[in-house]
């Protein structure tokens, strides 16, 4: 038995899937070789750490909310908002900026009272480049990504973001829903939330994004023209 053999068989040895003479040989070598003994001890210790590796529990009441939201999301008549929790990292505060940028620098608009764009990517550079009414033009059956960029300087819990879509417009992956709601924890910094819009019919209309935190609310509108 050699140290190389131990290395090759270490996983099976740890998992107890070697038996008989081989196990006895491995055991004898480990007992006689200080380096292999340390390696096995370290591997076992790592296994213990992995078994104790923590799982952070869900937010309070999550399971009940999730079950209720699943039921609601499948009710076509009511088309209620869907509770959706995502890890958006951004911020909503007194100075909120939402910048809307098409995938290829279509339009942008600063809608808050303190934008903080930091050029560095194509989108963020585009977002920082100007202000004005936001609008996107799409062809029928086209899929286009519109990025919502949130900027501010403080962390907030329980921020609700609701997106209302005009008739004939859907988000990819959310067929049949005209209102989608996210609940999220926002952190300092700027983030991009890509919305993959699909034009299915109609002439378009206004996509309304509503951010709510406690008593504060910001509403932003993006005109989407389907041609």
């Amino acid at each position: 038995m050699t140290c190389n053999r131990i290395t090759a068989q270490l996983d099976d040895y740890l998992d107890g899937t070697v038996s008989g003479d081989l196990r006895a040989d491995l055991q004898a070598h480990v007992e006689a070789c200080a380096e292999c003994r340390a390696a096995v001890a370290g591997a076992r210790r790592l296994q213990r750490v992995l078994r104790a590796y923590p799982v952070e529990g869900p937010s309070a009441g999550y399971f009940d909310r999730a079950l209720a939201a699943a039921r609601q999301a499948s009710a076509p008549a009511a088309r209620p908002g869907r509770v959706w929790t995502v890890g958006i990292s951004s911020a909503l505060a007194a100075g909120v900026a939402v910048l809307v940028v098409g995938g290829l620098l279509l339009h942008n608009a600063e809608l808050g009272d303190r934008a903080s764009a930091a050029p560095g990517s194509r989108d963020s550079a585009a977002a920082a480049s100007g202000s004005g009414a936001a609008g996107v033009r799409m062809a029928m059956h086209e899929t286009r990504t519109v990025n919502l960029v949130f900027s501010a300087n403080t962390e907030l819990e329980g921020v609700s973001l609701t997106v209302n879509l005009p008739p004939g417009l859907e988000l990819a992956g959310y067929a049949g829903l005209d209102r989608i709601r996210w609940t999220t924890r926002l952190q300092p910094g700027r983030n991009v939330l890509p919305l993959e819009l699909v034009a299915l019919g109609g002439a378009g209309g206004e996509l309304v994004a509503r951010l709510q935190h406690e008593d504060e609310e910001k509403v932003f509108t993006v005109r989407v023209a389907v041609i």
Partner: peptide, 12 residues
Amino acid sequence: QRLRLVGGSGQG
């Protein structure tokens, strides 16, 4: 379509 953190500072 990755939700990206752009820039950021301090705690982020």
